[in-house]
């Protein structure tokens, strides 16, 4: 167990937790500028969180333990995921257990916890959000797992550090048809999983079009702060996962402090760039009707299936 390895895990959790609101702020700012608005500044989500955390905790009458536990569980699952995914280093003490199926399942656990909380509130909007969220989640799960399957074929393992380390050593894997198809499939799945356009609109003010926001309507104060932080962390983790898997350059592969520092800077830059690009893209997209979303996900699923068969036939000889 090496010093830099432990530091890498701690740094991953810290940078995801502290950086997630900043990433959300950056994306909102990019969007605002492109739409011709001044924007509230990158640190606005942080200020919002601080404000919410200072407020009085509220328990709506008629809600139960599931409603109270869900925000903390959402943040916890995302934090554990942040520790597992090799954002900064592939040589960490938790690396051997960093299985990609486990990562996907942990994120799904957060979704399930929040959906149960939405139902627990007993309001029509809570139920509506939970129902839509679980419908989308049920369709995202096969897509994301199949993309994962495609990724694991060249490395012959579902261990994330092994996948990333393999890609660092052989960059040609990333440019292969299988790699590109898997990237596209995973990118669509990430959009759906994080509730971004065109699947869900995070900035909507119309209840009937809400998915994620409808589930969390009853939250206020510190609970709302945790829900918001959890959602921002999920976005960061999934964008970070995309960059780690498909642009793994800069990630430390050995126990070295210097490499770790470089990896930290590169990770922040990569994720910020990807987030800014996503925000810029969202300006030009409209939200899909809820019942058109399955078509999008089916397309993504097909890409992932093609990626799997392509990687088999192209590496089969």
């Amino acid at each position: 167990m090496s010093g830099p390895g432990i530091a890498a895990v701690a740094a991953q959790v810290a940078v995801v937790t502290a950086g997630a609101p900043l990433l959300a702020g950056l994306m909102r700012q990019v969007r605002a500028r492109l739409e011709g608005r001044a924007g509230a500044g990158i640190a606005q989500p942080w200020r919002d969180l601080r404000k919410l955390l200072r407020k009085e905790p509220i328990t709506p009458v008629g809600t139960g333990p599931a409603f109270r536990a869900a925000p903390a569980l959402l943040v916890a699952t995302t934090a554990v995921t942040a520790a597992l995914v090799p954002f900064l280093s592939t040589d960490t003490p938790v690396g051997r257990n960093a299985d990609v199926i486990l990562v996907v399942a942990l994120l799904a656990l957060g979704t399930v916890a929040l959906a149960l909380a939405g139902l627990d509130s007993g309001t029509a909007f809570g139920g509506m959000g939970a129902s839509r969220e679980m419908t989308i989640a049920a369709l995202v799960e096969p897509t994301i797992l199949l993309a994962v399957f495609a990724l694991s074929i060249p490395a012959r393992s579902t261990n994330l550090p092994a996948i990333v380390a393999g890609a660092v050593e052989q960059p040609a894997r990333l440019a292969s048809p299988a790699g590109l198809l898997a990237t596209a499939a995973l990118a669509v799945a990430v959009l759906a999983e994080t509730g971004r356009l065109p699947v869900d609109n995070p900035a909507t003010h119309l209840e009937l079009t809400m998915v994620h926001e409808a589930m969390v309507l009853e939250y206020a104060g510190p609970d709302l702060a945790l829900v918001e932080l959890g959602a921002q962390m999920r976005l960061t983790v999934l964008l970070g996962l995309l960059t780690s898997v498909f642009a793994p350059w800069g990630i430390a592969t050995g126990p070295s402090w210097a490499a770790l520092a470089v990896a930290l800077a590169v990770f922040v830059a990569k994720t910020a760039l990807l987030g800014a690009a996503l925000a810029a893209g969202e300006v030009f997209w409209a939200k899909l009707r809820l019942f058109r979303v399955p078509e999008l996900l089916a397309g993504s699923f097909l890409l992932a299936l093609l990626a799997v068969t392509a990687s088999y036939f192209l590496s089969g000889e």
Binding site: E56, P57, I58, T59, P60, V61, G62, T63, S121, G122, T123, A124, F125, L217, E218, A220
Partner: peptide, 8 residues
């Protein structure tokens, strides 16, 4: 924690 009516 204070209790409050559901907002809905």
């Amino acid at each position: 924690r204070t209790r409050a009516r559901l907002w809905d």
